[in-house]
């Protein structure tokens, strides 16, 4: 599904190398967790994949189902099936949540040469999905993320994901800011989407989320590199011992 090879990324504005040769390969239907100390480059990796400006790829490649996504515009990557649930979702006053989502769903469909969703059908689908995530109708009408609590913003990200039905989902600290119940709702939402044709890259600091969303593989990123890859037990080890042992081991 997603193949990242020797990815080197620096900041466009300054001479600062952030990713220093990331290798990561996620098969169809797999869930990979990414953990690592603050500032190690996890969000940067997610942003570079989804196409945010400000970064420069100096070496390496990233392919989504064989397509070179780094050469694509952000909207093309989205239409190709990539989705990032952001660590800090943006507030957009004046743009209605529903208007935005319907525009997005139909833009992707159009880009893929599929038929657009009618207003009626869209409404029916979004109501059902919002209900599962306990997002009320009033929230759907509000401007995108404006006045949403931290946890509501994260649930809204997952709502967008379920509406857009991407193939490769990147979740950047979706668990932070969620209370215990919301974490279960969100995890249920994610698990409901798991299938053989869809993969996940779940960035998190806590084992807790991985109790709900069981990963196949866990990667540790430190200082812009994947320093260790293992099974779910790796997350447990970090939960208990922190990163010190692993970092000492690899240096």
């Amino acid at each position: 599904m997603l193949n990242i090879k020797n990815l080197h990324v620096k900041l466009e504005e300054e001479d600062k190398q952030i990713l220093k040769g990331i290798n990561l390969s996620i098969g169809a239907g797999e869930v990979h967790a990414v953990m690592g100390p603050n500032g190690s480059g996890k969000s940067t990796l997610a942003y570079v994949l989804s196409g945010r400006g400000g970064y420069e790829v100096t070496e390496g490649s990233a392919e989504l189902q064989g397509q070179d996504i780094l050469a694509m515009e952000p909207e093309e990557r989205a239409a190709a099936g990539l989705f990032q649930a952001f660590q800090y979702p943006v507030e957009i006053p004046g743009v209605g949540n529903m208007t935005f989502l319907r525009t997005a769903v139909n833009a992707q469909r159009k880009a893929r040469g599929e038929e657009e969703m009618s207003a009626g059908e869209f409404l029916k689908v979004i109501r059902a999905k919002a209900k599962d995530l306990q997002i009320d109708a009033e929230m759907l009408k509000r401007p995108v993320n404006v006045g949403f609590s931290g946890g509501e913003k994260k649930r809204n990200e997952i709502l967008q994901m379920t509406m857009l039905e991407p193939k490769m989902c990147i979740l950047d600290e979706t668990d932070s800011g969620l209370d215990v119940d919301a974490m279960r709702l969100v995890s249920d939402g994610v698990n409901a989407l798991r299938d053989a044709g869809r993969s996940f890259l779940v960035i998190t600091h806590y084992q807790r989320l991985l109790d709900h969303i069981k990963p196949d593989v866990v990667h540790i990123i430190a200082d812009g590199r994947v320093v260790k890859t293992g099974g779910p037990e790796l997350a447990l080890e970090i939960e208990h011992n922190g990163y010190a042992d692993i970092l000492a081991e690899v240096s």
Partner: peptide
Amino acid sequence: ALFYLRSRGVPRADAEDLLVLS
């Protein structure tokens, strides 16, 4: 905000229009 909209698949020009209206 522009990137946020585009990352959901809204083409740049449409995303800009949405932001102007907003």
